[in-house]
Design a protein around this nucleic acid. Structure first.
Lengths: 224, 224
DNA sequence: TAGATTGTTAATCGATTAACAATC
DNA sequence: TAGATTGTTAATCGATTAACAATC
């Protein structure tokens, strides 16, 4: 159990557990059973227990789980008890928005620089963070011990930027470019494909409408 | 086969297929077999054929799939042959970035208004789009036949904004607030939980490091 | 001790992969 | 016709759910 590979399905649920635990803590709830948690979060009690037991026995038979204890455990599993040093690649709209978005900063994910190729942007400041020359990225990552590179450049440049970041030694890449980039296996990669997400939304909207249409037609037939 | 519910795993792969087909088309490739496509995209040939056959027989035995034909089919399945009328809720950093991001506009997802409660922002323009009073959202959605509401407000206000949008009659909600909102079942919902994504990245970074550490220790032991 | 709820094993379900007959 | 590759059925794999003994 100690170093078995955990399935990605489980990992993707952890941040969600954590969000609900934060809310419970705010409300002053001290303990919760897997059944109560199930009613709240919508996963089965069985799945909750199964998920948590991948990492250890955090509960207590006959009692349940300590809300704060579980929150601490999940935070540690995700590595949120550490700080992360980040750079943003690309000072376009998305890069700027992320630089300004304080939400991540509060959670220990801190932006130390924004990198650009456009000479007119270099030297300016974004929410107190300097925009620097893309040419200086490797040196910066090494000297500032940067952990994460956030890719906010165009599809065309994303792979080259990723290569440069990996060469410089980042441990993780958060990719917002609408393309599948490749990274060496010792670098973690997380994609945020916004277009894909929007396309998926479009599908579901149309699917709902198509089903409503079909139901109406069926009702009509039954009336006849 | 015609109106069977398609699993979400399949739907999530469709935009990715489509992206690769666009690239192939750009390169002038006219036909592709499931095996060639597999090498390119990284899914098994079997899965590709299985996925596509949920919607119909788009291929031809002994030949393969027409790149352009398949692109058209998948676009139609996703509903990308239509236009979508959108509003952005919240003119903060994220709302502003999305308003300015032209990528979606080019794909037929058009923003017709940004809504805010902060009086000092109302009346201003963002990339040519007017910032309007949140109080006027219901009327606007009805009059302008808005399809999609994009939620870029704080966690605290997200549910109330979603309720208002659903009441006004949007068909889909694209939620960027870091909270699980609830919508009636006739409204499609797609979440972009950026924090969750970042937390998942943190996990994988730490997991890689832990494994490297373990390997090193094991090697040491073997040398002794 | 009795009741509650976990941790864990076993059963089920769904999704992916393999195999192959159909057919271009 | 022979070769290639699909569409589809069957087998496998992994993830979810159910069941229950362990234990607080």
């Amino acid at each position: 159990m100690k170093n078995a590979k955990i399935s990605n399905a489980v990992i993707k649920r952890l941040p969600r557990y954590r969000r609900y635990l934060i809310e419970l803590r705010k409300k002053g709830v001290e303990k919760i059973s897997s059944k109560e948690f199930s009613n709240l979060i919508g996963y089965t009690a069985s799945q909750i227990r199964q998920d948590l037991n991948n990492f250890g026995g955090f509960g207590q038979q006959g009692y349940g789980y300590s809300v704060d204890g579980l929150y601490q455990e999940i935070s540690a599993i995700l590595g949120l008890d550490k700080e992360y040093r980040m750079v943003i690649m690309g000072a376009g709209n998305l890069g700027q928005a992320i630089a300004k978005y304080t939400h991540f900063h509060k959670q220990g994910f801190k932006v130390y620089g924004v990198f650009e190729v456009k000479q007119d942007l270099i030297g300016q400041k974004l929410a107190g963070i300097e925009i620097m020359d893309y040419e200086d990225i490797v040196e910066f990552v090494e000297e500032e011990a940067i952990d994460i590179g956030i890719i906010c450049v165009s599809q065309e440049n994303a792979q080259e930027v990723a290569d440069r970041l990996c060469f410089a030694g980042v441990k993780g890449i958060w990719n917002f470019a609408p393309i599948d980039i490749e990274v060496p296996k010792h670098v973690a990669l997380e994609n945020v494909h916004l277009s894909d997400s929007l396309h998926s939304l479009a599908y579901h909207m149309n699917d709902i409408q198509k089903r409503e249409q079909l139901n109406k037609e069926k009702e009509k037939e039954e009336t006849n």
